[in-house]
Structure formats: C-alpha cells, structure tokens
Design a protein around this nucleic acid. Sequence first.
DNA 1: AATGAATGAGCGTTCATTCAT
DNA 2: TATGAATGAACGCTCATTCAT
Lengths: 203, 203, 203, 203
Amino acid sequence: MAIIQERSRTRRQRLLDSALEVFTRYGYNDAAIDEIARASETSKGGLYFHFPSKQALFLALLDDASEALLRRVESAMASEADPLERGDAALREVLHAFGSHRLLARLLLVEALGAGKEFTTKLNDLHAAFAALIADCLDDAVVAGQIPPLDARLAAHAWYGAVNQVVLRWLMTGEPQQLEETYPALRSLLLFGVTGAGDEQRR
Amino acid sequence: MAIIQERSRTRRQRLLDSALEVFTRYGYNDAAIDEIARASETSKGGLYFHFPSKQALFLALLDDASEALLRRVESAMASEADPLERGDAALREVLHAFGSHRLLARLLLVEALGAGKEFTTKLNDLHAAFAALIADCLDDAVVAGQIPPLDARLAAHAWYGAVNQVVLRWLMTGEPQQLEETYPALRSLLLFGVTGAGDEQRR
Amino acid sequence: MAIIQERSRTRRQRLLDSALEVFTRYGYNDAAIDEIARASETSKGGLYFHFPSKQALFLALLDDASEALLRRVESAMASEADPLERGDAALREVLHAFGSHRLLARLLLVEALGAGKEFTTKLNDLHAAFAALIADCLDDAVVAGQIPPLDARLAAHAWYGAVNQVVLRWLMTGEPQQLEETYPALRSLLLFGVTGAGDEQRR
Amino acid sequence: MAIIQERSRTRRQRLLDSALEVFTRYGYNDAAIDEIARASETSKGGLYFHFPSKQALFLALLDDASEALLRRVESAMASEADPLERGDAALREVLHAFGSHRLLARLLLVEALGAGKEFTTKLNDLHAAFAALIADCLDDAVVAGQIPPLDARLAAHAWYGAVNQVVLRWLMTGEPQQLEETYPALRSLLLFGVTGAGDEQRR
DNA sequence: AATGAATGAGCGTTCATTCAT
DNA sequence: TATGAATGAACGCTCATTCAT
C-alpha cells in the first residue's frame, strides 16, 4: 500500500517535473501533452489518470510553485524580528529561490502570464499574497517608526515588480550570471531609492 | 494611386486596430485570424494580403506600440534639461500613456510575454530600449552629482519593473481607478525608496 | 456567383452522399470523420466548413432523409381522394422509397436508433409525423364510415411498425429480394388482419 | 467451493444488472466500462475477470434477455391449445414482459440495433426465433381452418413489428402510461386489421 | 479473484495558411 | 486587391484493455 502510494507519488512527481520543463521550454500553448508524456516516460493516458486536463496540470504546477516559494519566503521572514530585516530576508530568499530554480522563475514570471485567461486568477492570488507579505512588513516598519507613512500596498507591488524585472532580465539575457549578485544594489534601491539618501554603506 | 494607397493604409490600420482588440481580449493563441478578419470587416484573404502571417501581424502591432510608446516618452524627456526631471517626465508619460490606452498596456505587459518564443527578442529589445533611456538619465544624474554612483542598468530595470507591476495591478484588479494617481508615490519610491530619506515633500 | 453556389452545393451534397454511405456501413459511432472526408474526396477541414460537427452532419442527413420521405409519401397520398386509398398509396410509396434506397432505409430504421440520445428527439418527430399522416387517414375513414371507430394513433403506430419490421427483415436478411413484393400481403394484413375477414381478393 | 461459486454468480449477476442499467441509460457506445464497474461496486479488473470484453458483456446481456423473453412467451403459449389463442397469449406475455421491464425493452428494441455490426446476427436470431414462434401459430391456424392461407413469415414479422413499435412509442413518449392497456386494440388489429371485420367484440 | 494504475491507438475538432476565382 | 472555400497537420482527450501486485 505504502509502496503503491509511493510509486504513485513518484509518477505524479515525474509528470510534474517533466511538465515544468516542457511548459517552460515551449510555453503553455506550444507544449504538447504528448511531449510531456514522453519526457516523463509515461503514456498520455497515464498523464490523464493523474491530471484531468492540460489546464489542471499547469495549474497544479503553478500551485505547487507558488506555495513552495511563499513558504520559503515566509519561513525566511519568520526568523527575523525587525520589520525591515524581514523585508531584507524576503528579498534575499526570492533572489535565492529564483536564482537556483530557473524553471520555476520562468514558470511564474513568464509562462503564467501568457497561458490564457484561465490562469489570471491564480496569478493575481500569487501577486496579492506576495504583496500582502511585503505590505505587512512595511506597515510594521511604519508603526515602528523606521519609515514614514506610505501607501504600503502600492510600495509592495512596486518592490515586487522591481525584483521581478531584475529576475526577468536575468532569465532572458543572462545578466548578471549570478542572480543573487543583484541583492545589495536592489536592497539599496528599495530602501533608499536612487538618491541613496540614508544609505550609509553606499556613501 | 494615392487614393488606393490611402485606402490600403486605412484597411491596414483597421486590421491593426481589430487585431489589438482581439489579441488583448483573447490572448495571442486564442485569438483567431477569423475573428480579427471579422472584427475589421475584412476577409481572411484580405488580412493575409497585408500581413504574411499571424505572427507578423502581432509583431507589427508590437512594433507600432513599442515605437509609439518610446517616441512619446522620448519626446516628453526631451523637453526637460535636468536629468532627474527627465526621469520624472518619463514616469509621468508612461503612466499617462498606459493609463489612457489600456489595450496597449495589456499588449505590451501581458500578451507579449505569453505569445511564444518568437516574440522574446522583440520584447527584450523594448526592455533594453526603455532601460537604456532610464539608465542614461541616471548616468547623467550621477555625472551631475545629483545621485551617488550606482549600477544604472540594474536600477533602470528595477524602476521599469516597479512601474510595470503597478500598471499590471491596475490592469488586473482595477486598482487604483486612475493609474496616474500612483505618480507621486511611485516617484517618491523610485527616488528615495521606502525610507523616504531626502524626500522633502514627504517629511 | 451561381457557379460558386453550385460548386458549393455540389461539395455539400458530395459530403452528404459519402456520409450516408459511411454512416450506414459502419454505424454512427464507428464511422470516422476521416473516412467520410476521404470518401467524398474532400478534406476534414472542408467537411467542418460545411457542417459544424459530426452530430450536425448526421442530423442533416436525418433531416434530409425524413423530409424527402415524408414529401414523397404526402405527395403520393395527395393524389388519392378516398381515405383508405390514401393509406394504400402511402404504403406503396414507403415500400417503393425504401426498396429503391437501401441506404436511406438503413439510416432511418437502424442507425438513427443507436446513434445516441441526441437523435431521439429527431426520430420521435419522424415517427410522430408518419403516425399523424396515417392516423388522419384512419380518422377520415372512420368519418366516412369505411371502418369502425378505433384508436387511430395506436393503429397508426402499429401499421408503421409492421411496415418497418418488414423493411428491416429485408435489410438484414435480404428477404424478399424485392421489397415491393410484400405490398399485397401487407395491405391485406393492415386492412383485414390475419383472419382476412372482408378481404374479397383473398377469399 | 459452492460458496465461491455462489459469490461469483452474485458478482456476475451484479455486473449484468449494472450493465443493463448503464447500457440502456447511455447507449452501448457511450456506456463506459468504468461506469459499469462503479455501478456494480466492482473494479474494472473484476469486470474483465467475468467478461472478456465490453462486447461480450453486452452480448451476454442480450442473450440473457432474449432467452428469458422467449422462455416466458413459449411457456405462456404452451398452456393454450388453440392456435390463435396461443398467439393471443404470446401478445399478452410480450406486452406484460416489456411493460414490467422497461430496461429490457430498451435493450432489445433500441440499444441492440445501434450497438454496431457485431450484434446484428444476434438480433436477427432473436427476430427469427420470435417470427418462427408466431409463424408456427399462424400455420397451425391455417391448417385448423381458422384463417385463410397466408405468408406466415411475413405476417409474423409484421405482427412483431407492430407490437415493437407500440412498445417503442411507450418507451420514448410514455404513451400510454400502462403498456398493457394496448392489448385489446392490438389484438383486434392483428386479427382483423383496421376494418375490424369479424371482430365480434368491436361490432 | 480482485484492484486500479498504466497503456496507446484512435478520434473529433481547430485553425493558420493557401489559392482559384 | 479581396473573397471565402478548402487544406491538412496537429492537438487534447477518451476509453477499452492489460497487468503487476
């Protein structure tokens, strides 16, 4: 029983792995179910035994990836008490996660957007979850008097977008070689903007 | 002859208009050539007379939109001498342009990403052009001593991403009602970060 | 224009002809769209240009066949004044029509039944139309005093079923060689039953 | 051993029952093996242990139903000495059997026809067996001088078809509520036709 | 005997593209 | 230039059947 479950989980996982690879290589629409089945050394029917449709497979991928990323970031934030340090930790974790999982980055930042209307909701949820995480940080920092009052939601989305675009550049042009190299500069930008006012390290 | 050319241009433009609408409504892959032809009150054959393929049509749309946006931003920047003011003008113009052309925003920020590998290059070019515009500003500002030295390319992409995400939120959730309302907060974030250090207005 | 319409009608008709042949040879479910396209020397896409689905194609066939049969029978009945003669004419015409269009008989009596729930309504309509035709005859004959009062609807269905079964036997076993040979015996049965009471010819 | 056989028979019977229900609800082609297995609270593998194929399962159903019906009719006929009374008994029994086993009626009169070429033979056999039963009656009645000579085979098929169609109407339109109500009228029609000549009761 | 995960051939349908008119 | 009927490769999905356990 346990063995069967394990094998089943294995098969399912193999399918998800292959799906991630094929979806990110060809894009949602150009990814053929046949190709995913072949890549996972399964049959088409086997795939459809585990996932009811192509859409559901992609959604499962999206869910897994979103959840994993969120969990990692949340856990990284949990180990910091200071609000701004928590934001810092989030940034580091995101860069680390994407930097070490190129496919996951591609999935969430590129393919999910163009996969069709059906996935918009999911993506919005992810954006909202991330933005909420950051917005909470910022609100706490405001309460703690670390930063002046501001539109935390907007700032959170702006942060998120700034990071995303840097990841996107890395994905598409390969610059810089190590995504995590961007951490210091990004941190400074998010905290102090381009003027760098108050950034003691940069002075 | 001139009349024919003009009529041709009209037809071509009608096709582009309809294509923009259909592509942004359904997404690149789910947009049917039939639908575009119908929407432009032409025939499929007529469409193929003006554009050799679906891909070319989308590319033309992307080109036109990118160029128009870039021209507008460049022209807005040209009328400002001060480097940081130029950046400011660019931000205002981008928010204004996207805010008043929802479809254009959707096309460039959403559909282009998911349309397939063939369009990645085009999108990279657009990103690069925008980033270059902003990076030049920042470099000038550094030279002028307005801001401390920094990785201008990275900062440019971060800026660009921050703005994009705010636009994206507006596209997908409708917040805020008027995109341009975000200008003051965004300006402050880009210049001074969340700490707002040096932001005399916010103090 | 007229030529195009004609060619179009030709193509459509060719499709219907091939569809009739393939559907009656393999049955609705085992008939492949590919096969129909091949048989009509068209492409699958061409078929789908004229008919939106396999179901619609079968339905069109059913409609055409029903209508043609009903029209023929109605016209045969129209030329007779006497109620019972009208019934006689209907019987002759049905036997003649089915006898000379084996495929049509197969379509209406065999394939339509097993094609699926979607066609039941259509088939019921046909049965109802036929039964109504005959029931009217019988009602008129009652009014004219030619036959005693009876449940005309039930009798109509029984007649219809009797004829159908004879056609079915012919379809499936090939007996008798000429379907129309069955006319005199069928006529006598329908009018006088097995007792033949009142059948002056049989006495 | 006996227990196992009994359990096996039980399982087999449960499968047949569920199969009858599923086949008549969805039609042969649209009935899924999965559905039958689920309905009988067995597994797909279990089903395939008892029946080698979907076709064989349907055939078994057809066989059982045909045999049961024939046995009932034969037994009903056996208790009558007079040829025409025997026919009468057959008619009563058929109406009673179908009237109280709607699914059986559907199976034999509707689904079997459209299930595909493979079942034609079986169906022909059933038709032939029934026709033979009735034809024998009629032949005997001729010999006994009760009715004039006639093509007994043809008459038998006509009878059979007349009854079938009345059953079919009941199945598909629900008229009349009780199938057995049709007995007197049908009896009269089969014996005396629409003229009712010789029908003392109708006079 | 029984289970249900796995197989894979086959099918209906779509749609970008072509081309005779 | 423009039309729209025609093409055909490709795809998502189904489901009867198999087989390791």
